[in-house]
Design a protein around this nucleic acid. Structure first.
Length: 204
DNA sequence: GATGCGATTCACT
DNA sequence: GTGAATCGCATCG
């Protein structure tokens, strides 16, 4: 699994990540999520929608490191998003984990999310996924850059039931504009109830 | 040093 | 369908 992350084909890696399982032991409770929705982001100069597009900064430094690491970032002043670094060191591509199905630790996931949420919504959306896994402003700093192949990190990734290629659908990525429309790099399990609703990017 | 905006979500209309 | 909440980063002066 983690060997596959070293591929320079970030789009192929993204597709293969569907069905993989992310497990967290942050905060003491174990929660696992089977991925149903991801997005691919390429590296420097290749992909205007990527955080790495403008080169290395302190924030995105993890993307430039070795594959298989967790890249966490904070958006909109309140949300965390979890990425898996892919490609060889220096390539700076990554896959954003957008949604999944909670397959272990339902009670812990429920307690971290609004009680009114339905189980299918517990990890539906990138910030929800991170929240269900116990990623907060407290835990994020420790997890950012950690090795997803090592259980001692408290957050790790393992192969799950692979998803049939025929069941994988694609669309443009969420929230990004014109440049990205030619790159339908959002991949999801067609018809799965845990996939987040698609929102198109808007011009401002 | 100041400013604008973003790979979002929830509550409300 | 739309707006509020909220903050770090990149950009510009």
């Amino acid at each position: 699994m983690l060997d596959a992350l070293a591929s320079s084909d970030v789009v192929g890696v993204a597709r293969r990540l569907l069905g993989a399982v992310v497990t967290s032991e942050l905060g003491g409770d174990r929660v696992s999520v089977r991925l149903t929705e991801v997005e691919a982001y390429a590296g420097v100069g290749e992909d205007p929608a990527s955080h790495a597009h403008r080169g290395r900064t302190p924030r995105n430094a993890v993307m430039f490191g070795p594959p298989g690491r967790a890249y966490l970032y904070f958006v909109y002043g309140m949300h965390w998003c979890l990425n898996v670094v892919t490609g060889s060191e220096g390539q700076a591509s990554a896959v954003l984990l957008r949604a999944g199905e909670v397959v272990e630790g339902l009670d812990a996931a429920r307690s971290r999310r609004l009680a009114s949420r339905r189980d299918n919504d517990l990890a539906r959306g990138p910030a929800c996924l991170a929240g269900a896994l116990g990623i907060t402003s407290v835990t994020a700093a420790a997890i950012n850059g950690s090795d997803l192949g090592d259980e001692r990190s408290g957050l790790w990734l393992r192969p799950g039931v692979s998803v049939d290629l025929a069941a994988i659908a694609s669309s443009p990525r969420t929230g990004v504009r014109e440049e990205a429309l030619g790159r339908p790099w959002r991949f999801y399990v067609n018809g799965d109830p845990t996939v987040s609703p698609y929102r198109q990017g808007v011009d401002r």
